[in-house]
């Protein structure tokens, strides 16, 4: 579980986050949603320590993350996996070398054991026969999946995904969502996902916070989205007239 207490983030005069207090639960897919520029990526980067909060604290299972020294931060990070918005695969390494990198760095596994683990992770994300390809030689969706494979190779306790399905077709997007969801349940880990994809919200939104103008405008789960009369949420989810009609039709029934 991860908990934030009154997180503020300013870039100069630009007050991006204004007091975020929330919890991300274990075994659940926790969603951070909001319009473009709402501060989703900033919040995610604060959670993993790539940015420092101007004010406020972040707790990983009651350990105050921002009070940890450099070394303890690194130790904690071995339990963290992250999928970047642009995948951030090492482009001079093959797919296999990418996924193996954390194993090479942090374990004493034999070559054979590593190979087995890499194959397992690739299979887990439904990818085969790409071990020796370079990231530039596979499609964007495949890169995302390799990114996920790399993020889970060390069996993390915390998984962060920055827009895991942006730029993908709806079918592939759903496959990736389902994949993250099942990994979360299988390994009972705390997963935090940034998204502005409506399908994700409805499909895997166990615990959702909606960021709006630096604050949490709404929180709940996918079951509660339809019935909510929160205007900001409704404007966000049912952004187009087409979707509004669909919702009205669904609610009339």
């Amino acid at each position: 579980m991860i908990r934030t207490e009154n997180i503020h983030k300013k870039f100069g005069d630009h007050h991006v986050l204004k007091g975020i207090t929330t919890e991300f639960f274990k075994g659940k897919t926790n969603l951070i949603i909001g319009r473009s520029g709402a501060g989703k990526t900033v919040l995610l980067k604060l959670l993993v320590g790539l940015l420092e909060p101007t004010e406020g604290d972040i707790f990983y299972d009651d350990v105050n993350f921002n009070k940890l020294g450099k070394k303890d931060t690194r130790t904690l990070r071995m339990d963290v996996g992250m999928l970047f918005q642009a995948s951030a695969l090492f482009d001079s390494m093959t797919v296999e070398e990418n996924i193996r990198f954390p194993l090479d760095m942090f374990t004493n596994m034999t070559r054979k054991e590593k190979r087995k683990r890499v194959d397992f992770c690739l299979e887990r994300v439904s990818l085969g026969f790409v071990n020796d390809k370079y990231p530039s030689e596979i499609s964007g969706g495949m890169q995302k999946r390799v990114g996920i494979a790399r993020a889970i190779v060390l069996n993390p306790k915390y998984l962060f995904c920055d827009e895991p399905n942006s730029g993908l077709d709806p079918k592939t997007a759903i496959v990736i969502d389902e994949l993250i969801k099942s990994i979360t349940i299988e390994n009972n880990i705390t997963t935090v996902i940034n998204t502005h994809d409506m399908n994700s919200v409805m499909g895997i939104g166990d615990n959702i916070i909606l960021l709006h103008q630096g604050q949490i405008a709404w929180r709940g789960n996918n079951g509660e989205v339809m019935e909510s009369d929160n205007e900001i949420l409704q404007n966000f989810i049912f952004a187009s007239p087409f979707l509004q009609d669909l919702r009205d039709a669904a609610l009339e029934k």
Binding site: L50, L76, M82
Partner: peptide, 9 residues
Amino acid sequence: HIDAMEIMG
């Protein structure tokens, strides 16, 4: 890439 490595620890 550097951020990705940092996150790995």
